[in-house]
Design a protein around this nucleic acid. Structure first.
Lengths: 109, 109
DNA sequence: CATATCTATCGCAATATTACGATTAAATTC
DNA sequence: GAATTTAATCGTAATATTGCGATAGATATG
């Protein structure tokens, strides 16, 4: 065990859960927010900005890249990361869609 | 290691990451969606609805309860769960706020 | 009160995540 | 081409998560 039983859920449920997971770490939230703030792309100064080791930042960047949220383009010896607007919108829409489904009919418990 | 370094992030970042984590599992997404659908509160028929063992469902319910997203009231021998509208709105607002921060200035990488 | 029903909790096994030092790989600079 | 800079990857340790059987606790029903 320790293995999520994805077979028993719908694709949408699995996908949404994975999207949440991609952002379910303060470092990844911080990275995204830094990318938003310094709108021009940012490279490895994330290591200085956050207080984590280079290997750790690189790992989080990899997860965000796997999630599709960010892109990295090589620029000389460093790598320039930025948010993928298209995927960002997909995330936003998926989250909006999830949260809008519940209307407070406050007649419960 | 294996321990998130929460000290180096802001409260908001930690909180948002934790909110994401609460929903970062398809079973918890499915539970919430089932609670929305059967708007009247639902009890342990979640065990039948999803294909997970009773102990596992109970654990996920506990996490959702810890996250504040759901409430449970004892009703005879079973427990009736429902979404907490107030916390739901907090989540919705926090997520909206996060996603709205990025405006596509498509002049990047 | 004995029995049945439903849920929470315990204990365990398997896997995943987080973090980092060390190393490797690629590109620039001298 | 050697040295430097930057980022990715490997390997490892510590902790967290997922899932479930078994058990315990609480409430109803006979």
């Amino acid at each position: 065990m320790g293995l999520t039983k994805t077979e028993i859920f719908t694709d949408k449920q699995n996908k949404l859960a994975q999207m949440m997971k991609a952002l379910a770490h303060p470092a990844r939230i911080a990275i995204i927010q830094h990318l938003i703030k310094t709108q021009a792309c940012v490279c490895g100064d994330l290591v200085e900005e956050l207080g984590l080791a280079q290997a750790t930042i690189s790992q989080h960047l990899k997860e965000l890249k796997n999630a599709g949220l960010i892109q990295g383009t090589i620029e000389g010896t460093s790598v320039c990361y930025c948010i993928d607007p298209k995927v960002w919108k997909q995330y936003k829409d998926a989250f909006d869609n999830f949260f809008v489904a519940y209307k407070n009919k406050d007649g419960c418990c």
